[in-house]
Each structure stands twice: as C-alpha cells, then as structure tokens.
C-alpha cells in the first residue's frame, strides 16, 4: 500500500536527495517513488532529470523499460500471479483466468473499488510449490480460488 497516495513534489525532492550518495542512483530513486506513491508520476521526471543531469528522455526511457515502474496509481494491494513454465505445468493459466474473472479485471487492471491491481509475474522462485502468487508481500503457494479469497480477506482486514 503506498505511503503517500498522491504525488507530492516536496516529498519527491526529498526522496531524490536521499539517494544522491549512491553510484548510479536512478533505479533506487524510482523504486522509492513506487513505494512512496505507488507509481512514478510524470511530474517526477523533470525533477529527477534536473538533479541527476540527465535528459527527460533518458529518465522516461528507464521508467518505461522496466515492468516494475508504474506510471499510473495502482490499487491499494497488488496481486502478482506467476505465468512462467513451472506454474503453467500445474495449470496456472486456467486458475489465473478464473481469478481475473472473479475480480472482474484483465492483466494490469484494477478492481472497480480500487482495492486490488493484478499483474503477471514471470517466476517468484516458488517453482516446486506452484501455482504461485504474491499478494503485496504475502506469498501464496498451491494457489487456487479458495486461497485467493482467503488471502484477499486477510490483507483487506489488515
């Protein structure tokens, strides 16, 4: 869940400043934005570019290269469902289709109540206990509809 759900320029500048001692600080900065706001706002791009002496195009290029960096706000919780081979061998695709239908979304979509965004992930390293999913930081092995409902109940209550 994002700490600050709306983009805030002051906080953004602070985050950038906190990372300037690092070698190659751009990815850590973008991760920090993702964590703080839930996404990397377009408004952050010129701030980062100016401070790191990069062009806006370079910063934009990095943000759009990596699957992790969202450019739009996401749901309060993020459900990542594995679509890689080991999970496929245990029928993950059918289970994923069921989960998407249950939540009424497609891949990368967010439920109408803004509660859950669903993203594909290619391997969580849980390949001998698949199908696997990750709801925020909560890993789920032997993933099925019942476990999904239970896990969503758990994070929503927290």
């Amino acid at each position: 869940m994002p700490k600050t759900p709306v983009f805030d320029e002051g906080r953004a500048r602070q985050i950038i400043a906190e990372h300037l001692d690092l070698e190659g600080p751009l990815l850590p900065i973008l991760h920090a934005f993702n964590e703080e706001f839930g996404f990397v706002s377009d408004s952050a791009v010129p701030l980062i570019a100016d401070t790191l002496k990069l062009t806006r195009a370079e910063v934009h290029g990095v943000i759009t290269f990596y699957h992790d960096f969202r450019r739009e706000p996401c749901g309060r919780h993020v459900l990542k469902i594995c679509r890689a081979e080991a999970c496929q061998s245990l029928g993950s695709e059918a289970i994923a289709r069921g989960a998407l239908a249950e939540l009424g979304v497609t891949w990368h979509g967010t439920t109408k109540d803004g509660e859950i965004s669903v993203e594909p992930v290619y391997c969580l390293g849980l390949c001998a206990s698949g199908p696997s999913a990750l709801l925020d930081d909560l890993p789920i092995g032997r993933f099925d509809k019942a476990k999904l409902t239970e896990a969503i109940g758990e994070v929503s209550a927290a």
């Binding site: 690092l22 850590p28 991760h31 290269f65 990596y66 699957h67 992790d68 960096f69 290619y122």
Partner: peptide, 10 residues
C-alpha cells in the same frame, strides 16, 4: 557490499 534491486526485467 551494497544490495540493489532489479525492476522486473528478465
């Protein structure tokens, strides 16, 4: 040593 995180690019 410093730990750095990737960002979902295989």
């Amino acid at each position: 040593i410093e730990l750095r995180m990737g960002a979902g690019a295989y």
